[in-house]
């Protein structure tokens, strides 16, 4: 199981791609699906690699994604 998780509020996303680009473990990719505003939100293509560092959350200008660590 992954150390961390990413939570994505797809409807808030504007598809800038910051989270995908700067994820240190390359967990994310932009989905081919659209949200209701017509943007492609990210989705965890490699969820198991997530360390829960929340760098995606630090970068996201739309407060649409954040990461966290699972309680052990």
């Amino acid at each position: 199981m992954a150390k961390g998780f990413v939570a994505i509020m797809a409807e808030r996303c504007k598809g800038c791609g910051f989270c995908v680009e700067f994820c240190p473990t390359r967990v994310l990719t932009l989905s081919s699906a659209f949200n209701s505003k017509g943007y492609h939100p990210p989705y965890p293509v490699a969820a198991e690699k997530c360390s829960g560092c929340d760098l995606c959350g630090m970068y996201c200008p739309d407060f649409a994604i954040f990461g966290g660590r699972h309680a052990r």
Partner: peptide, 10 residues
Amino acid sequence: ETTLEIPCEI
């Protein structure tokens, strides 16, 4: 990957 469901445990 074409839906907006999040495939990880939150």
